[in-house]
Amino acid sequence: MAARRALKAVLIDLSGTLHIEDTAVPGAQEALSRLRQASVAVKFVTNTTKECKRNLLERLQGLNFDLQEREIFTSLSAARRLLEQKQHRPLLLVDDRALEDFTGMDTSDPNAVVVGLAPDRFDYQTLNAAFRLILDGAPLIAIHKARYYKRKDGLALGPGPFVTGLEYAADCKATVVGKPEETFFTQALSELGCSPDEAVMIGDDARDDVGGAQNAGMLGILVRTGKYRAGDESKINPPPYLTCDSFPDAVEHILTNLL
């Protein structure tokens, strides 16, 4: 740890770390306020494929968290940044609610394909259109590759199977932009103007939050809330920098030991 530079930024996962569904993790609001009083930048990072930043913001503000829209960085933000860097015009296979985060982008005559969780767009015609673009050289960008997700009526296919199918059809490899990809974390940090060795990530997902952040050169703190299951800390190598009961404990550790 001696080689690490002074801590400048804290990246915080949302669902499972600050709140579980419609309930805040006890003490999380005050802990966030205390963190903000320290000289450290804060960013909220999450994998989402169907909720725009405004939706996320409204939910968190409704739970009395103090944050602003520009502090949220999602897998959709990461996709947009990638498209803008390469000046691509995307065909967006994303949920209607996520489209808002792509407002203002040129989508005419597309030369890139973005796949999120979009059951309404995974029909044969639309996938054929996406396939033809990819075969003509358009890059395939995946918000993430989850196999399936749970909804009220049971399990349902996630974006991963469709991304995998398109990869097979066009004999290509998708660029995945969400957590745990290294570029996701470095992009989020670049907006704060700091490097991975000046940052720590707090999250409830050992692989996607903690493992991904540590692979990118950050410290990772695993919290035992949300999707955490006993033994998760031993599922990644190297293990988490720290595992603690919940977000307020993680903040306490940062304030006491890292600043």
């Binding site: 996938l127 296919l157 199977p161 199918g165």
Partner: peptide, 13 residues
């Protein structure tokens, strides 16, 4: 798109 694409999708899922 042919059947192999959907076979791969279900295999992955």
């Amino acid at each position: 798109l042919d059947v192999g694409v959907y076979m791969k999708a279900l295999e992955y899922a």
